[in-house]
Amino acid sequence: MISQDTYRKIRTSMIVISLTFGTGVFWAAVAAGIVRYIVHSDEDRTLLFVGGPVFVLYCIWCVARLPDMLRKAGYIE
Score class of each variant (00 low, 15 high):
1 M>I: 03
2 I>Y: 13
3 S>D: 15
3 S>H: 10
4 Q>F: 03
5 D>Y: 01
5 D>F: 01
5 D>L: 03
5 D>K: 01
6 T>K: 08
6 T>L: 10
7 Y>T: 15
8 R>L: 08
8 R>K: 14
8 R>W: 03
8 R>F: 05
8 R>D: 12
11 R>Y: 05
11 R>M: 05
11 R>F: 05
11 R>T: 11
11 R>K: 09
18 S>K: 01
18 S>M: 03
18 S>G: 10
18 S>F: 00
22 G>S: 10
23 T>M: 09
25 V>S: 06
25 V>T: 13
26 F>S: 14
28 A>N: 07
29 A>D: 12
30 V>F: 06
31 A>P: 07
31 A>R: 02
32 A>W: 02
33 G>C: 09
34 I>D: 06
34 I>Q: 07
34 I>Y: 07
35 V>A: 07
35 V>H: 00
37 Y>M: 10
38 I>D: 02
38 I>S: 06
38 I>G: 04
38 I>V: 15
39 V>Q: 11
40 H>N: 14
40 H>P: 08
45 R>Y: 12
47 L>R: 10
47 L>Q: 11
48 L>G: 15
48 L>T: 15
48 L>D: 15
50 V>K: 08
51 G>T: 10
52 G>E: 13
52 G>A: 08
52 G>F: 07
53 P>W: 05
53 P>N: 05
53 P>S: 04
53 P>E: 08
55 F>I: 06
55 F>S: 09
57 L>C: 11
59 C>R: 00
59 C>P: 06
59 C>Q: 06
59 C>D: 11
61 W>D: 00
61 W>I: 00
61 W>N: 00
62 C>R: 00
62 C>I: 04
62 C>M: 08
64 A>G: 04
64 A>M: 04
65 R>Q: 12
66 L>G: 04
66 L>K: 00
67 P>W: 00
67 P>I: 04
67 P>K: 01
69 M>T: 14
69 M>F: 09
69 M>P: 05
70 L>S: 12
72 K>M: 10
72 K>Q: 14
72 K>V: 10
72 K>L: 10
72 K>Y: 11
75 Y>G: 11
76 I>V: 14
76 I>Y: 08
76 I>D: 13
77 E>V: 09
77 E>W: 04
77 E>A: 11
